Amino acid sequence: MTAPRRSTVSHWDDLLGHAFGLLLGRPLTEFDPAATYAVFHYDDETAGEALGALDPAELVAEVSGPSEDRGGAWLGPERWVPDLTGSAFVAKSVRPAALKALLATPADSGPAVVFGRDLGRALLEGALRRDELSPDAFRLYPVLLLRPRTDGSLLDAMRAATFTMSAPNGLTDIEETLARHGYLQPGASAVDPRWEPVLNQLDDDALRRHLRGLCLNAHLARSAGAYYLGPGECPADLQPIADLPGSTAIAGWEFGEGQGATLVVAVKDPHSR
């Protein structure tokens, strides 16, 4: 029983590794194998209120292991196992004085970035009060940039970013959905022309259809799927992560009309601090 299972996993590792290399413009083996790769996600519906709903103990609860698919029909963060210790909180328009000792950014200007682990410890130890993080009723808490649990490899980060954690299970066909609801004419392509020839190199039909839904043109990506910015590109809402010392943007996606964004990034891992 175990041998066939290992064979299946290896087969999909190979398929996904090849697909991700095409999307990134070079094989995964050409990226630094010693680096830590992570995913961060911005969701405008929850990002500014998340801290108010979290128990500080959740921010220091260690998680480890590879990505995992919690299921669901949509390509969204509910399918991930969250890693709140490694997630980032960003104060963009206000820099509460209470954050100063916790900053991951050395500069006095620009967004204030604090990792969940440090914020949770300060709250639990009483060094920081939650009301200090929202100075008045018109200002939100620091914005959550959610990090899903992954094992630190580029392969697993790309799995999480593309919602292929349980492939071949959990794959979608967003183009078919768009056509069924009248947003796309039968036989027409919804894919950004930049990525059409890239995705056509994939032999597995289900995987190709799934990834096409994450490479839609900018117009159709407003209503479903995602718009792939490309290798080395970072969505604006996640720029504070890419700007951290030791960080390098690997690939970025945008969802809707600015409502969401995902970044794969090589990081100086806050877990190691």
Rank of each mutant, 00 (worst) to 15 (best):
L102N: 06
F31A: 00
N200R: 14
G225D: 08
I241W: 08
T2P: 01
L15C: 04
Y183M: 14
I174W: 08
G232D: 09
P197T: 00
S7E: 13
K268W: 05
N169F: 07
L154T: 02
S247L: 08
R194Q: 13
A112K: 11
E233T: 00
P142F: 03
C215A: 15
A221K: 04
R79P: 01
G71T: 08
A98P: 07
W12A: 01
D151M: 01
V267G: 11
M165Y: 04
E176L: 14
D203A: 15
T262R: 15
L24F: 00
E125K: 13
L144I: 00
R130N: 03
P270E: 11
A47Y: 10
V191S: 01
F115K: 07
V267K: 11
Y183H: 15
P168T: 03
G72I: 11
A122P: 09
T150C: 07
G213A: 08
N169H: 11
G258A: 10
T262K: 14
P111A: 06
E62T: 08
S93E: 15
D243A: 15
A104Y: 06
V60F: 10
A167P: 02
A19F: 06
L140V: 06
G225M: 04
G86H: 07
P168C: 02
P135Y: 12
G230C: 01
D173M: 03
Q259W: 10
W195T: 03
E68R: 14
G258Q: 09
L119V: 05
L128S: 11
L119T: 02
E78S: 14
L140T: 13
P27C: 05
P231C: 11
D192I: 05
P135M: 10
P56S: 10
G17T: 09
V39A: 12
S64C: 11
L84H: 08
L202F: 02
G25A: 05
A161N: 02
L28W: 08
G72A: 06
F163T: 00
S64N: 12
D205P: 00
K268P: 00
F40D: 11
L216K: 13
F163H: 12
R149Q: 15
S93F: 11
A167K: 13
R117A: 14
D13H: 15
P96N: 06
L211T: 02
W74V: 09
H271P: 03
A251V: 10
Q201G: 02
G48S: 07
G71F: 09
G21L: 02
I250K: 06
A104I: 03
L207N: 04
Y141E: 04
R79L: 02
A167S: 08
G182M: 10
V114E: 02
V191T: 14
